[in-house]
Design a protein around this nucleic acid. Structure first.
Lengths: 279, 279
DNA sequence: GGCGGCGATACCGCACGGGTATCGGCCCAG
DNA sequence: CTGGGCCGATACCCGTGCGGTATCGCCGCC
């Protein structure tokens, strides 16, 4: 299956073999055997070009999930093994720079619990928490709807908040008590910065490139950009920045999420504490 | 991993090997290798008794999920392969005897859709739909909260209804306009029937044994039992039965559920139709 | 028409999975 | 206290299968 996923992603037997660290002929054979075993043509070998068939597309999705599941099994078992005894820690994944005080409150409150286990933090980029949970690199995560997807995860809602526009202090818009999205997105002098996608490249368009929150805030303070963010980030604003509520921006819901079948004692305690802290 | 799950379930190498159709020594070795690869002791070989370690318990849960995922991958790919072209059907799992008219309405409405694909029905027992979805025997299912668990599934709510007590016609309680749970569960002359568990055995206790809804209704009509069921089952009541609303019984929510990563065109259409039909 | 890219096929060797035989520890019966 | 039986581990052997190299067949392109 790993082999098939590699070929399906590369759409090229030679490159896929290289990526897998094996030679091309065994790979061809392996795919052939898989196709015979499943009774399905997975790849259409056109002239000099390989395409996914419908069955192949189905298998690609399913195989990715399956591979993530076995990776998760290995990782979680390894972690459970090296824990002392009855004290397997949990790994909490969260976006770097988001939910700062909520996270702090949660960790403090949880550490005070009588049966608390150690909590390791795993800071990751936007939208990476889902995969982290699915392949076992993390056990529980803080997500932010509607930006993250909770498909396939169990969740508890923690907090709902509006969004604010982050502007350079002194900008004309900061005099207004509230704004609308259109007021902010259409500013020629303050474009929204561009973020690198999952592949590390920046989308085309106007606006400066920013790689993390620090850079972003710096750009705003310099009067080169603006941004819309959950209102809880107000507590982290440095000098030179102002925040104005944006009425029609989607509300952001912070949820705590975990993979459905792995509700260990540590995860359960953390979830319970999170719900209690936020209610 | 299959090997490990077998041993973990049997807690006995010999029996596990027999179940797997291999000899015991290779099995011992395989488990040993797995333990070395993961760097974890999975099974505590006590004197004449094998126990799961904590790490083993973790792996058991994770491995079950992983195995279900690869089974699902194989099954779904096979099904996708033998479909004509762009017309992969979907398998809809539902409890036998539940949601009858809703199901009929849904299938009718969906069949009338322009891009409908064939829908195969898979009737299964209580609580089996989740596993069916997870290991690929089904693509979409109708579940009933709070009886079924939706952990790890994407869902859309379809309908919420109260519950009614099903009593033999003419029973004194049928004169009351509404009941409370305690009124029904404590009746010495009309005990609740016992259902076989997932393993096929009946729990101990009073009450007759019933294997399906037909038997159940028959028992009630004969004045030997009573039952509490969603009110939509009223339409299926045969003569000799009466239904009285039970106020404090938990409301039953019918949801349509599907595995999160496999939202194919067919599943999406079915879900859309279901939501439309029920709103 | 020759060349080059790419997947399939042919063939070989080794490593790993599975089998049988046997050991070692433990409980229990006598 | 000792022998037998149960059960998992170990030792050793064998065949299958996976991975490697060499080569073919096909097609597009210069």
């Amino acid at each position: 299956m790993r082999y098939f996923v590699a070929v399906a992603e590369e759409l090229h037997f030679g490159r896929a073999a290289q990526r897998l660290g094996i030679a091309q002929p065994p790979l061809s054979r392996a795919i052939g055997q898989l196709e015979r075993r499943l009774g399905a043509t997975l790849l259409a070998r056109g002239n000099r070009v390989v395409t996914l068939t419908e069955a192949g597309a189905v298998l690609l999705r399913e195989a990715r999930a399956a591979l993530a599941a076995v990776e998760a099994a290995e990782r979680r078992t390894r972690r459970a093994a090296l824990a002392p005894a009855g004290q397997a820690g949990v790994v909490l994944a969260t976006k770097a720079g988001a939910s700062g005080e909520l996270l702090a409150k949660l960790l403090d409150a949880y550490a005070a619990e009588p049966d608390a286990v150690t909590v390791d933090l795993l800071l990751c980029g936007v939208g990476e928490q889902g995969p982290m949970l699915r392949d076992g690199r993390a056990d529980v995560a803080l997500l932010h709807l509607p930006f993250d997807t909770t498909a396939g995860l169990d969740t508890e809602e923690l907090r709902t908040e509006g969004q604010v526009a982050i502007l350079p202090a002194g900008h004309p818009l900061t005099d207004r008590p509230r704004l609308r999205t259109a007021d902010v997105t259409g500013l020629p002098d303050l474009p929204m910065p561009r973020w690198p996608g999952p592949d590390g490249t920046y989308p085309a368009g106007p606006g400066p490139e920013a790689r993390d929150h620090t850079q972003l805030l710096q750009l705003i303070a310099l009067g080169r950009a603006c941004w819309i963010a959950p209102e809880s980030c107000r507590s982290q604003l440095r000098e030179g920045l102002a925040a104005v509520p944006v009425d029609d921006a989607p509300t952001v819901t912070t949820v705590i999420a975990w993979p459905p079948h792995s509700r260990s004692r540590g995860v359960a305690g953390l979830v319970r504490t999170a719900v209690r802290v936020c209610s």
